[in-house]
Computed example of a mutant assay.
Amino acid sequence: MRSITAIMFTTLDGVVQGLGRPDEDTRGGFTHGGWRPRYNDDIMGAEMARGMAAPGDMLLGRRTWEDFARVWGRATDGNPFSAHMNAATKYVVSQTLTNVDDWQNSILLRGDAVQTVAELKARPGGDLSINGSASLVRALHAAGLIDHYTLLIHPLTLGSGTKLFDGPAPLREFDLTGCVTTGTGVIIANYSLKRARA
């Protein structure tokens, strides 16, 4: 069975919205877009590159896929992240998209997110990683389908914006399996789901 890792950039107050660019996600009047890039450094780059080195496929919600397809799908900058994103198989969970032809190696998963992802997870294949896609992560977390989290916790609060968990999340316990602090104060914490003891 495949495992699923959610990779989330978050603030201290749990905000995961609009991290890359001012115009990335302004839903709900969000005005703090683009809060993450100033925290990039070589340590973060090395940790993210380490994650990319492991074989696996991507799992994305519609909004994140559409944004990534615009940004990464047309990238010709020689950036290894661009090459990785374009080469990876990308499973897109959506009830509204009719095709995912705009970005190479994308496969549409139509229907209920939990059901389609549970079926995908049960099939043979590479492990899956979710980048962003907070609403998808929340749904899969509630269903017990997230095996690992990589949280990049940034040392700021925004006071508004979509949070990783808006409202209560069901009880799930995780073990800390690794932790790195970057030179800009970002904590990169890796967690794995604690399995019930037999």
Rank of each mutant, 00 (worst) to 15 (best):
V100Q: 04
K90A: 12
V15N: 01
G45R: 06
A69P: 08
S106T: 04
G14D: 04
L109E: 01
R70E: 13
I43S: 04
G20Y: 03
V16S: 02
V15S: 01
T76P: 02
R74A: 15
W35Q: 01
L151G: 03
A169D: 07
A83E: 13
I107V: 15
T177W: 06
D57V: 11
R172H: 14
V93N: 04
G56A: 10
L152T: 03
L152H: 01
F68R: 05
A6Q: 02
A83S: 14
A75L: 14
E66G: 09
E24C: 07
F9P: 00
A189I: 11
T162A: 13
V92S: 08
W72S: 09
L164P: 00
G45K: 02
L19K: 00
G33W: 03
G51A: 13
G33H: 01
A49P: 07
L145K: 01
R27C: 01
G18Q: 02
Q17N: 02
D77L: 13
I4R: 00
D41C: 10
D77S: 14
G14L: 11
R21I: 04
Y149D: 05
S129T: 04
L171D: 09
G159F: 11
W103I: 08
A143I: 10
A87F: 13
G73C: 12
G61P: 08
L164A: 12
G178H: 04
D67N: 12
G14S: 09
P170A: 14
G56I: 14
A189E: 10
Q115L: 08
D77A: 12
V137S: 08
E66R: 09
A134M: 05
Y39F: 15
R110M: 07
H84C: 09
I7E: 08
G33M: 10
L109K: 03
A189C: 10
A88D: 06
P80K: 08
S192M: 13
D102H: 05
V16N: 02
T98Y: 02
F9D: 06
Y91C: 13
P168N: 11
F81D: 07
G18P: 02
G34D: 02
A198N: 07
D112A: 04
S106G: 07
T64E: 03
Y191G: 10
W65P: 05
T96S: 15
Y149E: 05
R110Y: 05
F68M: 15
D127E: 09
D166K: 07
A139H: 00
G161A: 13
D77F: 14
G185E: 11
P124D: 14
N99M: 05
L140R: 00
